[in-house]
Design a binder for these strands. Structure first.
Lengths: 236, 236
DNA sequence: AATCTCAACTTGTTATAACAAGTTGAGATT
DNA sequence: AATCTCAACTTGTTATAACAAGTTGAGATT
């Protein structure tokens, strides 16, 4: 009796899902039905369902039911030579669009100042874009751009992605230093990406350099970990 | 009143944690104290704490309390030229050790067979290693090695990591194709890595090639997303 | 001095109960 | 035929209650 009821129930359901007894998108039995099936209280059934939600196997929709999450991920290629995200996505036959959430002059945090080497003049342009794949919100890109570029290319930056804008204006992207990590959705990110609080997100944090190793953009692309992954190739 | 009580409570606590009112490792007030402070039932307090756990901000320990999770990540470098994980970790002043969990001849799943191009002779060696950083379990590495190498180098493979073993025996690693994604801990992974069910994990899935683009190892390194990240550099 | 016991604390599990708030489709109304 | 209403279903929130199971330190026992 050392394994809690809610765990044994969620493990049973997990096996059924993985065995395909409930297919992706399909509805699980309602809480009431599960209460009868397993002969437990609603609190225990809800705990079991919460376990499945935490494992990313199901999603709940109030008033409708609990549904098996369809699993398939879109990958971003990071291999050199550099490919722009929107092109890479487009090549896979997925329609890429974005929506401007923010574009303004700000005083960025300490770390960003030192990364962009603008400690003397603490100003940069902050842009937030909501990226959509086939119309569905998939990622948020938040980046700080050097003030002179933000000023000069503001119209273009609002219309298209950052990297193509810079390259079109004769500012080549020479190198990107990046870190990939995973975090949990906070309230804001959850809101934009339509995921519950704590949902796993994958964060791609980048510093972009132009010639002479001059840093020009620092940003983060935050995507839903259930829908995206990063692909890369390393050579000897 | 559209925001649930448990959310408003967890948001209040989150702000306090982020403002440093509770430092990393410090204990939050007990459930009873929080019940009195916010004038709500235990179920609501527990829901609020669950929100914080889901966001990776706190950890609970039965009989002891709720503690603020210390945040700092170790990064693995993926930049070419290829650096072995254990060396990269060692360079950062962290002691790297591992424990052999499994080493056996198996019949691998379909996908692995086709990746390793051994459809004709469906056999490979499966190894599972638990990687420790400064003695703490940090990642599980699970890999399938071509049968001839598994057979030939079995003693060495049990004693050290896979890539150095191959290189020492004149089998150079020429290329690695990798995908980085995030998943949720299942029961097994949670057990080894000492995290609760559903805890976010970061998965590095790799296919390794030697000369002539011959695949020799397919594997996955699964690490705790709260402790690790991947760093890389992309050049034009 | 060293060990043992146990009360008082902590979080974990489970049940019962009631109402709130989305969703849906049958049947009434227009 | 089109629209409206509402009962019956779904999951979400919150309270009260009781016991299980780790943890800890004061005080009793050795």
């Amino acid at each position: 009796m050392s394994v809690p009821l809610h765990i044994s129930i969620s493990e049973k359901l997990r096996c059924q899902i993985e065995a395909g007894e409930y297919s992706p998108g399909e509805k699980l039995p309602s809480e009431h039905q599960l209460m009868e099936t397993f002969n437990v209280s609603r609190i225990t059934v809800r705990q079991a369902i919460a376990n499945l939600v935490n494992q990313g196997l199901v999603q709940t929709r109030q008033g409708k039911g609990v549904f098996v999450t369809p699993q398939q991920k879109v990958s971003y290629s990071l291999s050199s030579p550099l490919v722009f995200l929107e092109k890479d996505i487009g090549r896979k036959g997925i329609q890429f669009t974005f929506e401007n959430l923010t574009f303004k002059k700000v005083s960025p945090p300490e770390e960003v100042l030192s990364i962009l080497q603008i400690d003397n003049n603490p100003v940069a342009y902050l842009q937030k874009k909501l990226l959509r794949m086939d119309g569905v919100a998939g990622a948020i890109d938040m980046s700080y751009v050097l003030p002179e570029f933000g000023q000069q290319f503001r119209t273009q930056l609002k219309r298209q992605m950052t990297f193509p804008t810079l390259e079109e204006n004769g500012i080549p992207i020479e190198q990107i230093d990046a870190v990939i990590e995973s975090t949990h959705a906070d309230y804001e990110a959850g809101d934009y990406l339509d995921v519950p609080l704590g949902h796993p997100l994958i964060v791609y944090r980048y510093t972009t350099y132009t010639t002479n190793h001059r840093p020009i953009v620092y940003g983060e692309t935050i995507s839903r970990a259930d829908r995206f992954c990063y692909a890369l190739t390393i050579k000897r």
